[in-house]
Every structure is written in C-alpha cells, then in structure tokens.
Design a protein around this nucleic acid. Sequence first.
DNA 1: TATTGTTATACTCTATAACTATA
DNA 2: TATAGTTATAGAGTATAACAATA
Lengths: 153, 153
Amino acid sequence: MTDLSDVTDPPKRAVAHAQLSSEVRGSVLRLARRLRQEKADTEVTDAQMAALGYVFQAEPLTIGQLGEHEGVTPPSMNRTVGKLVDAGLLTRRPDPADGRRVVLETTPAGAAFVLETRRRRDEWLVPRLAALSADERRTLADATAVLRKLTRS
Amino acid sequence: MTDLSDVTDPPKRAVAHAQLSSEVRGSVLRLARRLRQEKADTEVTDAQMAALGYVFQAEPLTIGQLGEHEGVTPPSMNRTVGKLVDAGLLTRRPDPADGRRVVLETTPAGAAFVLETRRRRDEWLVPRLAALSADERRTLADATAVLRKLTRS
DNA sequence: TATTGTTATACTCTATAACTATA
DNA sequence: TATAGTTATAGAGTATAACAATA
C-alpha cells in the first residue's frame, strides 16, 4: 500500500484522506462486528449489554441521558431498562432532587456481568494480540489513542 | 500511557496484552458505534444495510452463506433479504446448478445504495482525519492492516 | 407551560419448529 | 435421508403519539 499520509498537494491530499477513511471504516467496523459476537451469555441482548455497559461506566444516569447516548428514544430505552431491572442487573429509583427523573445504577450482579463480558471479549482478543509482532502491537497501542480522538471530535 | 508493547518478562507481558486488549476493544467498539450512526437514509435498517453490503462485496451468495456471515439463522436472513428484494436492492433467483439454493445479487440500485452509504460515513470521517497530524494518520494507516489481520486470525 | 418518564400501538429483527422442494 | 429455503408463530427493540407527574 502506498503511504499517502503526508501528501501536501491539496487534491492528492483529499484522495489520500478518502482512501484512509475507507480503510479505517472497513477495518474498524469489521473488528467491532467480530468482538460483539463474544458475549458472556445469551440471556442479555446486545441492546441491553450496551445500555448496561454505559450505566456501569457513567452511573448514576437518567433514562433520558442513557437513551441519548445510545441514540434511542426514551420509550425505547425505558423498555430496555425495564428488562435489565427485571433481570436484577440495574436499579431504577426516583431522583430525590427532581421527582420527574429516575436514577439508574448497576447492581453488584450487573457490574459483575459487565466485567465478565469484557473478560470474554478479551479472551478472544488477547491471544490474537500475543501472536502479533512487537511492532504491530506498538502500532495498535498508538492507534487506540488516535481512534478515541476521532470519536471525541 | 506506559509503553508495554515489547515487554519480555512473561507475567508482565500477559498484563500488557490484557491492557492493550482493553484499549483496542474500547476504542474500536466506540468508533464503530459512531460510524454506524452515519447512514444514507432511514428507509434501510442496520440489519438490511449489513446484509446488502456483504452481498455487494461477495456476490453471488446464497441465503445460508449470507446468514452465516451475519451470524443469523436462515429464516431471519430470509426475511431480511425479502425486504431488500421488495425494495429493489437485491435479486433472488434459483441456482441453476442446484434448485434448492437461491442466488442473491445486488441490483444497480442496491450497489448505488451501498456506495452512497459509504460516502456518507466517509463524509463524517474524512474531515476528522484531515484534522489529525501526519504522524497520527500514518499510525492509523499502519493500524488498519493490523486490525484486519486480527479479524482474519 | 415545559420536562421527564411511562403507556399504547405498530413495525422490524430475531429465534425455533414445522413444512416443501430438491439432491 | 439430508440439505436449502420458506412459512408460522412468538419475543425483543425500535418508533410515534398520547398521557401522567413534577418543576
């Protein structure tokens, strides 16, 4: 593959960025797809897993905040949260400061489930990372910071 | 962040790989999530988009092959394919060599839709890549090859 | 009056089980 | 008898519209 990453001529630079975009898009979507197949069990669906994982990371949260993060309407998120509460993975209680809101928090079982799922995914990924060269691992380590920067911007 | 990518002591190397795994997992899932939000329109759902995109890339395909790739049962894939055929994006015809099978192919409209969706996602990503440094872009370019290697292994 | 969450209803995606057609 | 696809039916996720409670 030709390295076009620092081309300075404007039209060529645009082409280089489009090509890099295509490669990043393809490789990231593909690996994400593979990772999502590694889940702790089948009792919790993908949508529930994503919601639970974000609550675990950002709690306490309201229904609205969680729905916005997941790109889903409040009624939809409300239903998903209901399933997680029924499963004993989340608690839902009124916000003492504002009775319209509900506060979502993970139960100990919910937190354990998140950690277990991450462990399963790492279980798939770690041996594959170990099989790479040290240079390739260093490239990935550098790239994760850049990927996060893209998502934030 | 400490660079642990070429640690040689076995226990420390295991820790380093687990840490890298966590960072790769998180950054990839997060960017993928953001990219999927950029879609050409809302007439075609995510599941339909994924199926259509894979047919575009690997046609001709049978229902079973497509379902296996998408991690979905034949009845489920059959329904999704039905929607895409109704929408004029795929064709479904019997395999002349084996009457039990059906052959799926994209129509010109289906191919155009795939390209349009990719264009939309690039439209989100390209300006963000342009805002990176040349070094960061080079890191990403190197990393895409490594990410694909992980998915293949 | 505006905001937050919930309920009602409808459509898509998913699965398992059962059926049809072909090999 | 085995395989590929389809149909039947049911559960989960999504949306919009309408409602209730609170600020």
